[in-house]
Design a binder for these strands. Structure first.
Lengths: 199, 199
DNA sequence: ATCTATTTAACACGATTGTACCAAATGATT
DNA sequence: AATCATTTGGTACAATCGTGTTAAATAGAT
């Protein structure tokens, strides 16, 4: 009796429409009507999947984490050198005009949005922070990190650099290229690693 | 016949009320009524100083630049070592729970807000970017910068680090201390400077 | 064909939005 | 004391907001 519509697939579709509005109009534009229009649904249909706006936003935010984490895991499973994997993972969180994925941009909007109101920032829900922590652990295990470094300080510095680059890419969309981003990342890794990071 | 109310002082007061709302409720909370209530004014009074909401926002944004630039100039005129000045300037752009100034936080909100719609990001209106550029110039003139470095890349890396730290301070307000911020800044400067940066 | 879960459409409600207009109040100048 | 530009408070409007309710339409399983 259930219809053939995959419920989670539909919810994801709506969440993606929400992301698009967040990117084009900011949080001010996130209204049930705007989202319904963007998704090509009626108000009632939207309300069928998400009974309240807060529920929709929570889902849209958790989906960012899920998709970014999945991308990260995929890269880690590829067959490359450890450093190439690390670079690849970091690039996931950097948006550019060359790729149309929204996760990286939306992550930053949600991160800043959390600073308002009473909603608290949950570190374990920040895919980028978790990825950076993993990367730092790997660098230690591989004995690639310069010995005298303060690991927690370097972790912070890397996540801050990442967030700053995302903000820059969003603000200067057309002027930022993937190559420049990679160059910056590689250079930063070189300053904290013993051996020369590839390329 | 003009009344004794200083017009620009009044406009600044309203702009500061706007900042407060931006910090507490985000851009979604920025409405004429909210601002009027926060400033203790009536709708009509608010409209007397700013005939339109866009005009108010433009003024509030330009005021961020003005006040941050003024703070920067003040530090540069103090009698300290060049490196202490540089550190002091960078700290201006880092908010913390210890200081109640809003400029640094509001700057980031405006910067991200500019990514929506067709409003373009103007580099020369980003007080932090201008400060970092000045700092890099000074480092070169003082011959403190490591020679092999790519200056424009290091400029980017520093502004990105700064923006990332601001975002972090806003999101993890209570957990970030001024000392940690200074430590991070000093460490980063040490990685790009020849001599040891003080303290 | 019938049943049932899913999906859509349409409308109503109170609240809030930006903008606008106007009468009253204010205070320095005459 | 009289004058008048400046400043303020109050009200009004059309539009949009989130939410809720209702009935109709749809489509797959039986």
């Amino acid at each position: 009796m259930p219809k053939l519509i995959d419920l989670t697939e539909r919810k994801q579709f709506i969440a993606h429409a929400t992301w698009k509005i967040m990117l084009e109009q900011g949080m001010e534009g996130v209204s049930a009507r705007n989202i319904a229009k963007e998704a090509g649904l009626s108000l009632g249909a939207l309300r069928y999947y998400f009974s309240t706006q807060e529920e929709l936003l929570l889902y849209a935010e958790s989906l960012v984490f899920e998709q970014l984490t999945e991308k990260t895991n995929e890269i880690f499973q590829e067959e490359k050198s450890p450093l190439e994997k690390i670079i690849g993972v970091l690039m996931i969180f950097l948006p550019s005009k060359e790729d149309s994925d929204m996760e990286a941009r939306v992550r930053l909007i949600f991160k800043l949005h959390g600073s308002n109101g009473r909603k608290i920032y949950r570190e374990e829900q920040d895919a980028a922070l978790q990825a950076v922590k993993n990367i730092m652990s790997n660098l230690i295990l591989l004995n690639l990190l310069k010995k005298e470094l303060d690991v927690s300080l370097e972790t912070d510095r890397l996540i801050h650099l990442l967030d700053g680059m995302v903000l820059d890419a969003m603000v200067r969309a057309e002027r930022t290229t993937r190559g420049q981003q990679r160059k910056t990342i590689v250079h930063h890794l070189n300053t904290i690693c013993k051996e020369d990071v590839g390329r």
